[in-house]
Amino acid sequence: MSADLRLVLFDMDGTLVDSQGAITGAMYEAFAGQGLEPPSRDAILSIVGLSLDLAMAELSPGADPATQSALVEGYKNSYMVSRQGAGKAHSPLYPGTLEMLSALHAVPEYLLGVATGKSQRGLDAVIASHDLTCFVTRQSADHHPSKPHPSMIHTAMVETGVAPEHTVMIGDTSYDIDMGHAAGVTTIAVPWGYHPVDQLNAHHTINSFADLAPLLQRIWKA
């Protein structure tokens, strides 16, 4: 592993992009399609970050396996339809995201990556719509156990050759931060996402993306 490279991993939904409208809308349609009362907005946002099958099990604990599978497929179809033609508006970037990614990408020893509960198709669509070409490792729910299992981070570190002490995980939910702790990396929470930031138990918290670069410099100078 390289002693020089640093790996900066980001969650996607609630961290880089504000997809809550798309997520709640697709979830409402999925439940309506099965004749079920949809969960509350807060309940839906509380499961963002989990793989979809686990998220649906949390939201419909009384449903049989066939119904839960139908809910998963209904969500996928609704989300995909809503994304078609919507472009950047479907999941807009949070303020300062592009500027922050550009600045970090310009640092030679920094490698940027994503670890998300999205499907690979969903991740690729967001990256394409916003032209986010800076990510050298892209870990999605299709290829790993659900967060907070550390598989995504472990794989990203293997792909990039970066050690845990030179890796950070940035996210907005307990699933992101717990995954980072499980992988033995430094965790950074953002307060604009879907879980209360004071409940995340992250090593660090930033109030805006303008704070990230100075924080990384402090972390890796320590």
Rank of each mutant, 00 (worst) to 15 (best):
V107D: 03
P61I: 03
G193K: 07
T15S: 00
D4L: 12
G96C: 05
R121F: 11
P214M: 08
S146P: 01
S129I: 08
V168P: 10
W192R: 04
D211S: 01
V126H: 05
G161T: 01
V114K: 10
A125S: 12
G122M: 12
Y94E: 08
S151V: 07
D13E: 08
P150M: 06
M1P: 14
I47A: 01
G35F: 10
I23H: 05
R41I: 13
M12Q: 01
N77G: 15
V185W: 05
G14P: 02
A57I: 11
Y94V: 12
A202C: 07
C134Y: 13
K118E: 10
A222Q: 15
E109L: 07
Q84A: 13
Q68A: 10
E159A: 03
I177E: 07
H144E: 01
H143R: 11
L200A: 00
L132I: 11
A66H: 12
T160P: 13
T155N: 01
Q139K: 14
D42Q: 00
A103K: 12
Q20F: 07
H149E: 04
D172H: 02
P39L: 06
G35H: 03
L123I: 05
A26D: 04
G161A: 03
H90G: 11
N77Q: 15
D211L: 10
P38E: 09
A66I: 00
I219Q: 04
A163N: 15
Y28N: 08
A213K: 12
R218L: 06
K118S: 02
G184H: 03
L98F: 07
T155Q: 01
G85Q: 10
S102R: 14
E109C: 00
N201L: 14
A30R: 09
K88W: 01
T205W: 08
M12L: 11
N77W: 15
D124T: 15
S60M: 14
P150F: 02
M12A: 04
Y79S: 07
T160V: 06
D13Q: 08
A3N: 13
D178L: 12
M1S: 15
A63W: 07
S119G: 14
L50T: 09
P39Y: 01
Y28V: 00
D64P: 08
H204W: 11
K76C: 13
V81D: 00
M1L: 15
G25F: 03
L216G: 09
Y94A: 02
L104T: 03
P145D: 12
K118N: 00
H204G: 10
R218N: 15
G161H: 06
I177A: 05
N201M: 14
D124L: 14
T160W: 00
V81C: 12
G21P: 03
T15Q: 11
Y110M: 00
P95G: 08
A63I: 12
P164T: 05
R6I: 06
S78A: 14
A63R: 04
L104H: 03
H204A: 08
